[in-house]
């Protein structure tokens, strides 16, 4: 067995890989939350439910309509994004001028309803979704075995995260978004349809969760509570990274996945709490988060 300074490298790299996979999902979900929070100042508690919807839609598309994984990767995020658009337009917009607590409670309620509905329809034990044929198998690397599908998760989510970051930070559309976050009424005075941008942004942020759900279907069990389990950790990550920071959400998501993976190797008992411990330390030393701007 390969060891270095008494460390089992197979075990270490294996946990690092698991950490990166989890980190990829954390990054996608916290990115969506950060985008939505940045522009709408809404803390979207339904983000986990949208991730769960993404996984279930992929499963339903395959089993009821014969839509394969690759098509689902495109269609499902659009479908989930469309649900987000409807949600923003008809549920969140009417209460947009109320205290933010209202929208928070509304999204929380939506999450509970969706989770309940899917538990009622599919039970809570979870279903499996096969890894697509093209991504079966794996490669033996010097210190670990790397399954193709897991490598794909990391690469695909990095591409999506980087693309989203580029769109927001470097393009004209992103400049509208950033400026709309800062001063919506002035953007309206420039002739920009801010309510439309808000709706589409919400749809996009939610669509990212749908995308993460499709990606997750083959590696995690497709179950109604998959979103709520994930969401608590993702909220901790958003707090660590700093609310509303796009790059911060991505880096913190990946980083916390790795921290969690390493903890699983060195001190497994703490692996489920380490992120919350980090959150406490960050809140005590840098309350705005690692990448957040001090108010």
């Amino acid at each position: 067995m390969a060891t270095f300074l008494g460390i089992n490298l197979f075990g270490l790299f294996g946990q690092l890989l698991v950490g990166l996979i989890n980190g990829s999902f954390y990054a996608l979900l916290s990115l969506g939350l950060a985008i939505i929070f940045g522009l709408l100042k809404i803390i979207n508690f339904a983000q986990g439910a949208m991730y769960m919807l993404g996984a279930f839609f992929a499963w339903m598309a395959l089993h009821y309509m014969g839509i394969n994984y690759w098509a689902a990767l495109i269609v499902v995020p659009l479908a989930v994004g469309f649900i987000g658009v409807m949600m923003e337009r008809y549920l969140l917009r009417p209460i947009a001028n109320e205290d933010h607590l209202y929208s928070l409670l509304l999204t929380f309620g939506i999450a509970l309803i969706l989770q309940g509905a899917f538990t009622h329809m599919f039970g809570s034990s979870g279903m499996s979704y096969a890894i697509p044929e093209e991504l079966k198998g794996g490669n033996r690397l010097p210190f670990m075995y790397l399954p193709n599908y897991r490598a794909w998760i990391i690469v695909a989510s990095l591409i999506v995260c980087a693309g989203t970051w580029y769109m927001i930070e470097k393009t004209k559309l992103g400049a509208y978004l950033r400026a709309g976050t800062e001063n919506p009424s002035m953007m309206q005075a420039f002739g920009i349809n801010v309510p439309l941008i808000v709706t589409l942004t919400f749809g996009f942020g939610v669509g990212l969760a749908g995308f993460a759900g499709v990606m997750a279907a083959p590696v995690y069990s497709v179950s109604p509570d998959m979103g709520s389990n994930m969401l608590i950790v993702v909220f901790a990550i958003v707090v660590i990274g700093g609310m509303g920071s796009i790059g911060g959400a991505i880096l913190t998501g990946l980083g916390m996945g790795v921290v969690e993976g390493l903890t699983k190797y060195f001190y497994p008992e703490a692996s489920t709490t380490v992120i919350f411990a980090v959150m406490v330390i960050v809140l005590l030393t840098k309350p705005a988060g690692l990448f957040g701007k001090e108010a």
């Binding site: 400049a175 950033r178 976050t181 001063n183 953007m187 309206q188 005075a189 420039f190 002739g191």
Partner: peptide, 27 residues
């Protein structure tokens, strides 16, 4: 609606200037 008025050829320069801090000068 507010966002249609600019397109009639209006340009508004508000008292607080409303320069966006998240954008550089050229942006």
């Amino acid at each position: 609606p507010a966002h249609k008025i600019a397109h009639l050829g209006m340009g508004f320069c508000p008292e607080e200037r409303a320069i966006f801090s998240s954008l550089n000068v050229e942006e």
